[in-house]
Design a protein around this nucleic acid. Sequence first.
DNA 1: TATACGATCACCT
DNA 2: GGTGATCGTATAC
Length: 200
Amino acid sequence: MALPESKLPVEFYARPALDVAVDLLGRRLVRADGTATHSGVIVETEAYVGPEDLACHAARGRTRRTEVMFGPAGVAYVYFVYGMHYCLNAVTDREGFPAAVLIRALEPNLPAPSTSSGSTTPRTDGPARLCQALDIDRTFNGESLTGERLYITAGERPVDAPAPRRPVASGPRIGVAYAGEWAERPYRFWLTDSVWTTRR
DNA sequence: TATACGATCACCT
DNA sequence: GGTGATCGTATAC
């Protein structure tokens, strides 16, 4: 049995969101409750890079909703959309500068993707699906990502290896067409060899 | 107080 | 590829 993977420290998150978005690929998101631990390797992320970024919630100003994005790095920003979905972000950069990385897809600890409709395995491709699969809701908003319930470990490579070992691609973010030129920026990143990403 | 809309998903054709 | 579900926010009145 291998040694347990080390948790990513707060300093990992205290960098520009674009750097963190790439560095999070291949890392392991871990959800631990009282009885069980579930985890998956992060294979798709999106960066939201500050008040100038019209696709970032914080571009509309500092509100109760976006408050945690203005706080220190290394905490979860969980928001509710479309009346039924939660999405998980990691707050990045420095305190007072609102930026975050949306976790869009995980590669679960399973042999292969099951596309058959009979499967009971919760899917983890899609930001809302992975929150449902890992039982992440609003109570995690503002909670540390270096705590006990929810954290991210080094995963497939050493903590200080900033580049994933697997091939990375980038492209425009999903669902932000309203954001003008910001919508076209390639702030979405994924591992091209994973079948668990949102896109094809 | 009221209203419009969204960082989505599932199911239909 | 089109659309309905469903409700927290922000913004306007």
